[in-house]
Design a protein around this nucleic acid. Structure first.
Lengths: 196, 196, 196, 196
DNA sequence: TGCTAACCGAGACGGTACGTCACGTCTTAGA
DNA sequence: TCTAAGACGTGACGTACCGTCTCGGTTAGCA
């Protein structure tokens, strides 16, 4: 005989989904620090205790939203044309494009604030952008295609690139023309791409 | 014309200093989000109104602390031996050393949180690490000494370097051996340093 | 030199009065156990914290209402015509008259519930009806006028009379005809009144 | 005609008893207003729904406890030696003895609070002490034995006596020496007992 | 002997109110 | 006129229970 399952009602999937969606909605609309548990509960049509039963804190709910991909806009997806430098530049242009809108800037800063406050969010965000990300996969692919030298520290290049975006977002400075390309140059070397 | 001097006592310098020092103390001890205006007032022996009279928000007080250099530990200073790669690696080793202590990690994340929440802090922090920083000056110096190629996008290299540190701090991951050197390689190129 | 008074703003009399009046209003309208601190605060147009700053509990607020005479209806006043038995009977008729209305019954039971839950209310209520009451004064007066024998245990007679009313209120039974007079007989003796 | 018997298991006597005993235990230990349905369910090892299936409210459960005699301590029993005044005085001494202990005082106030809040408890308590009580029977017996005059309003005397105890309990005042005897004097007349 | 309705324990659910904390504003007395 | 102290209305916190509901498991009586 196998395991002895708990008796009683089971966790409501409807409530879980309503909470995460409400969180994503409010996060995008008001930002992380105007996000409140009571607000989420109200927006989701759920009792506060139902949130606290399954998540220990606001940050943990946001982390789960992140995991479900409810917080990233689609512009954050990395294109893959085969031309690494061009793909990276396009990607950065998209991101800086998002940052030009106040709501996009706020979303980005909210993600950073959430990551700074909550370890779950921090790690999840790092994984989304780092190790487990398409960016890292793309860079490794470039190494195997010999677009990059074999001993390139891929993770560090990724961190540097994303980190630079984070720094610009924190500065609130407008994006100067040419910044995406300069950033690509900064982390890949100005002319370092190897071509066969 | 008669001079129109203000009547009554002027702003108390003692109070201003007490507030900034109390803020720095509590910021380091408890982190940005457990920092409260009432806590600062109590710690500084000052009325709440005295803070609100001169600063519009918690973030603004923290930004002024930053300006006065009350928040950065001394390990954040960039050495200058003339050897750029070595100086950068040493600097990163110091910073990651700070991040290994829980209180150091919290301080770093608090700076990020404050920057994400408050525009003043964000810009001030960016300037401290970017344009107005010793890092940028050092990189420009390296260009003029031909340690770096002339068309290196210096600001972007700085952002990438600092940004990578920020990303690591947000991830809360332990620092693997060799990370400082790999980061230097990532932003300066693995073997790109020009030597005369 | 005399005392060193505290500096700073002084307690708001307007808030105090608004709270007590709101409490009395809600107490009469909804009863003691549907009385909530949030309800009082809302009705009084006051922050919850302003209540908690000055009173430790719901019971304490009610006790202060009692002290200010905001909870007793006017029918609870004891008449004084000089004829003790008749005055007591009239008084009891008034009280049982109040108890016949649902709202009156609820008010009485609410007073009892509040007294049972909170020591302040209990003592205050006992004083209002006992030692410090017009009932006791009236009984002592009757002794001095020789309407009652000199060694009558006046306080105990008062407690018994009020207590009997309390018991009837707790029973929720309708008041049978003649009850007031029977109660007077029960505590003063059926024919014991001394007449000159 | 076909009988319309219910199918399926009948009410669990074990659960009923466990609930009542748990209620009595918690009532005595914590008092009526810290008594919770969840607490009873937990203490009784029973699901909440099993309580709500058979009783509509906390008060109803307490009323059933009262009916089963689970709440009155044995000291509340009225002795019967044939000497009415002495029996009543002994009984009152026992009750005031119980009231001297904090737990006894709380139990008494909890009974009053429960009676004030819940009609079932109120009537049940009144019956336990009034019409259906040994006190009333004892007083009627005294009348038939000519210890009391024939037209004594027995029920009212009983209410007055019990009510006086209730008033003292609500006041939380310590019991002064001689109080039991004075109360007997107050309701039976100082010297009114008829002796053959 | 198997069906099935009603019981049972457990506990998740949408709510209300709790008592606390901090906000940013306002009001006092003293220097 | 500025300062300290701190009361004020506001709003969110995280917790305790409410009364209802939904599970899987158990137990009778009827077929």
């Amino acid at each position: 005989m196998m395991s002895a399952h708990r008796q009683g009602p089971v966790r409501s999937e409807a409530a879980r989904v309503a909470i995460l969606q409400a969180t994503a909605r409010l996060f995008a609309a008001r930002g992380y620090d105007h996000l409140t548990m009571e607000g989420i509960a109200g927006e989701a049509g759920v009792g506060k205790q139902t949130i606290y039963r399954w998540w220990p804190s606001k940050g943990a709910v946001v982390a789960d939203c992140l995991l479900d991909g409810l917080l990233f806009p689609e512009q954050f997806a990395l294109p893959n044309t085969g031309e690494l430098r061009e793909d990276l530049a396009t990607w950065l242009r998209n991101i800086f494009g998002v940052l030009e809108h106040p709501s996009g800037e706020m979303l980005m800063r909210s993600l950073i604030a959430a990551a700074a406050e909550n370890a779950d969010v921090g790690l999840r965000l790092y994984d989304s952008l780092g190790t487990g990300s398409t960016l890292n996969a793309r860079l490794h692919e470039a190494v195997s295609r010999a677009e990059l030298e074999g001993d390139t520290p891929v993770e560090q290049v990724g961190d540097a690139l994303v980190g630079a975006v984070v720094m610009r977002a924190l500065s609130r400075l407008p994006t100067p023309a040419g910044l995406p390309e300069q950033l690509v140059d900064a982390v890949l070397g100005r002319s370092a791409t190897l071509r066969p």
